[in-house]
């Protein structure tokens, strides 16, 4: 775990409400960074907002790292006001990563909203290794997309309003794929509703899937115990007097889980 000040090299709006920031990191970038891992960002030096914001790594090229973020509140709003040359304090790398994507024939990568970030990083890794993946990106409207719908290159966009790409959700796009394609493994990150839909689909169709989940965190490195998600246990009730059997720490055990490992609310 490294903490460092990084120089922002770009901070631009990608689509409606969606921003990308890239910054030069000398130390974190020298680590072996893997898709699914995250870093934690300090908005500024003052203590109005004491907590860092955990964000998935969206890209890493040489010493430049990038994140994709959505403006949720005053913290991310302030983040969007930063300009090239500004400094930003980063802590990382944190968490586990997607696995097995390099050992299936066709990994299917699915991203929704800011959940697109680790999926793009995984896509970049697949391309680097010459692995043909399928990329499905979901949004409510066409304005929230910045990629182009391109089925010939196995890139499918979906919109709830049908303004771009497939009219419907990422699940609708997934179901349009051929049976042999569907038998690949799913790698997904996005809103909880999307992840829980994909979880049900994967389990019912007996398809392997890894889901990267989101959680509020105070630290990101296993100390605060705040970021828990319920584990999926076969036992009906778990003794109250256990530790780490009912809940899993997203920051250390996650953020990537096998679809059958966790329970959504």
């Amino acid at each position: 775990m490294i903490i460092e000040d990084c120089e922002i090299v770009a901070n631009t709006q990608l689509a409606a409400g969606l921003w990308e920031m890239s910054f030069r990191s000398s130390n974190i970038s020298s680590q072996d960074l893997l898709p699914g891992q995250f870093i934690s960002i300090q908005i500024n030096e003052n203590w109005e907002r004491p907590l860092r914001r955990p964000m998935s790594i969206a890209g890493a090229r040489q010493d430049v790292l990038s994140i994709i973020y959505k403006i949720f509140g005053s913290g991310t709003h302030e983040l969007s006001k930063k300009i090239k040359g500004d400094s930003i304090n980063i802590l990382g790398p944190l968490g586990n990563n997607f696995t097995g994507w390099d050992s299936v024939k066709t990994p299917i990568l699915i991203g929704g909203g800011v959940g697109l970030a680790p999926i793009l990083f995984l896509h970049e890794h697949c391309q680097r290794m010459g692995i043909q993946s399928i990329l499905i990106v979901g949004a409510k409207t066409g304005q929230e997309h910045f990629l182009s719908h391109d089925p010939s290159n196995r890139l499918y966009l979906t919109t709830d309003d049908g303004s771009i790409g497939v009219n419907g959700t990422v699940l609708d796009a997934l179901q349009m794929l051929s049976i042999s394609e569907k038998n690949g493994k799913l790698f997904a990150c996005g809103p909880e509703m999307m992840l829980s839909t994909l979880q049900r689909f994967a389990i019912s169709q007996n398809i392997q899937a890894q889901l990267a989940v989101e959680s509020y965190m105070a630290c990101g490195f296993g100390i605060c115990q705040g970021c828990v998600i319920r584990r999926n246990s076969n036992r009906k009730s778990i003794d109250e007097h256990t530790y780490h059997q009912k809940y899993s720490l997203v920051c250390e055990d996650g953020p990537v889980y096998e679809a059958n490992e966790v329970l959504f609310d």
Partner: peptide
Amino acid sequence: PREGNPPPRIVETLSGMINSI
């Protein structure tokens, strides 16, 4: 041993945070 409380366990507030671990 204790599992602790169900999530959400933390939220940021102005110059602070609330926890219920």
